[in-house]
């Protein structure tokens, strides 16, 4: 467990995420109001908190999708205030949406995303197998899949990216028990392979078992649980 809170100026940035007094204003609302926390390599960190607490904003900011209005923010040694684009090739974000094309089949979606990130056919086959998509589902249009199957497909696109930092917003949502177990195994495998995982979840019991550390987000402020 890492308890590193705060970032001292001049300290080597060995943590995967280092946020110090970060403020993010989203649509004229301070969704993150002075967040200070850090995440060490190989951790699985759970962000827990009520709806509207700022969990999604934090995850999107870590992915370089939102500008940092104040404070110091570093992810994978990229300073998000100076260049929030550089971090994007190193992280994988699964938000509330799945990022899939409804008119394409599972295999076609996988092929598209793997081509964009330069993944091999072997990586794709492995990811589809892990998420239980290698059988007849592979030729099914995404529009015809259940919510849980779409989530699995989205997770498979994330696996092929081999991201150093996985940012997951409600990853268990829509999955059946088998799918949730598979997801947990996948995240632990990713961690063993060297990845770091930060995820937000309302399924506290399952999420706390999976996480190596829990952070509570409330009113845009982060604290250790």
């Amino acid at each position: 467990m890492s308890a590193a809170n705060g970032v001292a100026p001049g300290v080597a940035h060995s943590n995967v995420i280092e946020f110090a007094d970060v403020v993010i204003v989203y649509e004229n609302f301070p969704a993150v109001a002075g967040a200070t926390f850090s995440v060490a390599p190989g951790e699985i960190v759970l962000l827990q908190g009520p709806n509207g607490a700022g969990k999604t904003t934090l995850l999107r900011a870590c992915a370089g999708l939102l500008p940092i209005n104040r404070g110091d923010a570093r992810v994978l040694n990229c300073d998000l205030r100076l260049d929030r684009y550089a971090v994007r090739t190193k992280v994988g974000l699964l938000g509330h949406a799945n990022g899939l094309f409804q008119d394409l089949t599972v295999a076609e979606n996988m092929s598209f995303w793997s081509r964009l990130v330069g993944a091999s056919a072997q990586d794709v086959a492995q990811a589809m197998s892990v998420m239980g998509l290698a059988d007849r589902l592979s030729e099914t249009r995404v529009a015809n899949l259940s919510a849980g199957q779409r989530r699995r497909c989205a997770l498979a696109t994330l696996i092929v990216r081999r991201a150093q930092l996985w940012l997951l917003d409600e990853p268990h949502a829509g999955l059946d028990t088998q799918g949730r177990d598979e997801l947990d195994r996948t995240l632990r495998s990713a961690r063993e392979a060297g990845a770091t995982v930060v995820f937000a979840s309302h399924e506290i019991d399952r999420a706390q078992k999976l996480a190596t550390r829990c952070l509570t987000v409330s009113g845009g402020v982060v604290s250790e649980s």
């Binding site: 684009y85 090739t89 974000l93 990022g99 094309f101 964009l116």
Partner: peptide, 13 residues
């Protein structure tokens, strides 16, 4: 529709 444009941004494409 399903956030693919966001995914393209995050993919660093």
């Amino acid at each position: 529709t399903d956030g693919a444009l966001d995914s393209l941004r995050v993919a660093g494409v």
